[in-house]
Amino acid sequence: MRNVFVLNVGSSSIKYQLLDVEDGTVHGEGVVERIGLKGSGVADHARALEVVLEELPDVPIDAVGHRIVHGGTRFVQATVIDDAVEREIEALADLAPLHNPPGLAGIRAARAVLTDVPHVAVFDTAFHATISPAARDYAIDAEVAARTRIRRFGFHGTSIGYVSRIAAQLLGRERDPELRLVVLHLGNGASAAAVLGGRSLDTSMGMTPLEGLVMGTRSGDIDPAIPLYLAREHGYTFAELDELLNKKSGLLGLAGRSDMRELVNAANAGNERATHALDVYVHRLRHYIGAYAAELGGIDAVVFTAGVGENSSYVRRRAIAGLEFLGLSIDSERNNASSREPRYTSPDGSPAAVLVIPTNEELEIARETREAASR
């Protein structure tokens, strides 16, 4: 089994890639957008998939990997899809109402057309199934938590799993159960993870992707009484609170813009809101690096990945500055160099490494799809 067709389905889009899992060759990739919207010409996900298959090169498809955001407590690894698995994914829709239903629509469309190959669901939450009970559970009424499935799940699992594996290779410690990594997936959505020996020990996102780091438009950690106060004293509805915390907060809320390059340029030009937003952003990053150093009992490497993590030398420099007591430091020339390859940004001989590893979620989904289909 070599060629895996990877599907990442949104409510009005399908992002796809057909790749050779052996050598990473991409045979075809693209995106279909505005599915089901007026004037798009693509009525639904079934028609969109037909369009995609018409555009793919004549390469045999050996398996289909579906990115599914939420696996709940049921799915802790990539899973071959049958009708029962479909029903269970559907039952998890309340935990990820914006993501699981379109993912399921993609599964149904693809299974109806590609009937002779295995289909595998790869879950963002699965990598974090190993987090400790102390990190997993919130301090609320245990019966309420159990009945309503409130707990930390974590996200970005395929990305964090991929870069953790590449980091171990880069460090020459592929099978070391004691390898201690802090992985920072920094994009518009952002999360941190403590990874011990390739297994997630803790992660910053919680029951939803709202918890944790400051993000492009999401608040990250706040006092949980703030939404109650806004509702009680200022009349905010549930919908308005959702909009505020998920779409109008984070860097956008602090500075009126969420693009990191624009923020850094504005801060360098003396914009006080941009400077303050970056201060808050970096403060939260350093908070989690320190917390995870305590949980791991030290750090062997900090790994930066995703759009901001891979491309912002400013964020990397400020996040690591002053952490020499943890063995961490930055080499300015290495940090400022541009490359799409996994690389060190720390000086030679540093007690702990600082790495930049471009993520490849499609390749990780393809790899997990092959493993699941071969079990």
Rank of each mutant, 00 (worst) to 15 (best):
Y281P: 02
S11R: 08
K38D: 13
S204Q: 06
D58Q: 15
R173G: 04
E33C: 05
G270H: 09
S339W: 14
H287R: 15
A293F: 09
V26R: 13
G189C: 08
D279P: 00
S204R: 01
R180T: 04
G65V: 02
I330R: 06
A48T: 03
T125I: 13
A373L: 13
V52C: 03
F155I: 00
G39M: 03
I35H: 00
S338L: 12
E33N: 10
F325Q: 12
I160Y: 02
L252C: 06
D62E: 12
N8T: 07
Q169D: 12
R261G: 02
T125C: 13
D202Y: 05
E233Q: 07
K38T: 13
E333G: 09
R218T: 01
G206P: 01
L241F: 10
R47S: 11
P347G: 10
F123E: 01
V4G: 02
L37Y: 09
P102R: 05
A135D: 05
A112V: 12
R165G: 06
E240P: 05
F5C: 09
N360W: 04
Y162A: 00
L98P: 11
A135K: 10
E90F: 11
L53T: 00
D221V: 05
R147G: 02
H45C: 01
S164H: 06
E50G: 04
E362S: 06
E341F: 10
E371R: 15
I320P: 01
H119Y: 14
I160V: 13
A110Q: 03
G206R: 01
D124N: 15
K248E: 08
D223C: 08
A126S: 14
I289N: 01
A78D: 09
I365V: 07
I166N: 01
R34I: 06
G28R: 10
S346V: 03
S12M: 04
P102L: 07
K247I: 03
A293V: 08
L326T: 07
R74S: 12
D221C: 05
I299W: 03
I166K: 12
H119I: 05
K15D: 02
E361G: 09
V32F: 04
P351N: 06
G250A: 07
R165C: 03
R152N: 03
I320L: 14
G309N: 01
A274Y: 00
A306C: 14
L230N: 03
R180H: 11
L196Q: 07
G30V: 06
E233F: 04
E233D: 10
R152K: 15
G206Y: 00
M215D: 00
P351Y: 08
N268D: 14
T345I: 15
M260Y: 05
V303F: 06
F304R: 08
R367W: 07
R318V: 07
T125K: 13
E262S: 13
L213I: 06
G65N: 04
E262K: 09
V144I: 14
H119C: 09
E368I: 01
V120H: 02
T305S: 15
E90M: 11
F75K: 07
F75V: 09
A84E: 15
E341H: 13
D348M: 13
Y281F: 15
A105M: 10
T237M: 08
E368M: 06
V356F: 05
V182G: 01
R232Q: 08
E324D: 15
R367Y: 05
G161C: 04
T115H: 12
A110L: 11
N8L: 13
P97W: 14
S204K: 04
E362T: 03
F127H: 10
E333D: 14
